[in-house]
Amino acid sequence: MLDADFFRRWMTIAAAVIDREADRLTELDSPIGDADHGSNMQRGFAVVRASLDKEPPDTPGAVLMLAGRQLISTVGGASGPLYGTLLRRAGKALGDAAEVSGADLARALRTGVDAVAALGGAAPGDKTMLDALVPAVDAFGEGDFTAARAAAEHGAEATIPLLARKGRASYLGERSIGHQDPGATSSALLFGALAEAAGAGE
């Protein structure tokens, strides 16, 4: 079973990973975006970590809802409301249980990813974060953290040949081809952090 400590650990590891990879995310966002994805995510997750430290929520759902709320209010770019919605909806779906199972988390993440798709109006194949999130949630099953991480990473790499159909990158048309999507890349980092929190081996 997964408790609030587990979810706080996930968010803390995510903040550290985003911090470490911020330059790479911004680099990926330079040719096809507005070169702010790394710094936006870094700022958002630093606030998430600080607010979880300050007043640690005592249920898994509350941890994700607080994290999501902070991302919506501090990121400043489109990734804020998108990741914020992902975590808030997932948190809401977990309810106020003190511990949740892998299957509960799978259902909650699915709810969150569906909300992201509805909010952004994107579908898999549009070269967005959904290209990592959807395969990750599909692979997660009832709690296979390693498979979810691998699917997210594979999904992010598979955005390279895609033509962007959403967001600023879509204005570039064919010139968006050949670049890995920064949002899909940060989504893979979040699933990497989730696997690390669960102690799944590389």
Binding site: I72, T85, L119, G120, R168
Partner: peptide
């Protein structure tokens, strides 16, 4: 556009 649309939609959804 972009995050302006998504931020307002996310706030309304909450």
């Amino acid at each position: 556009l972009g995050s302006a649309v998504l931020t307002v939609k996310a706030l309304l959804a909450e």
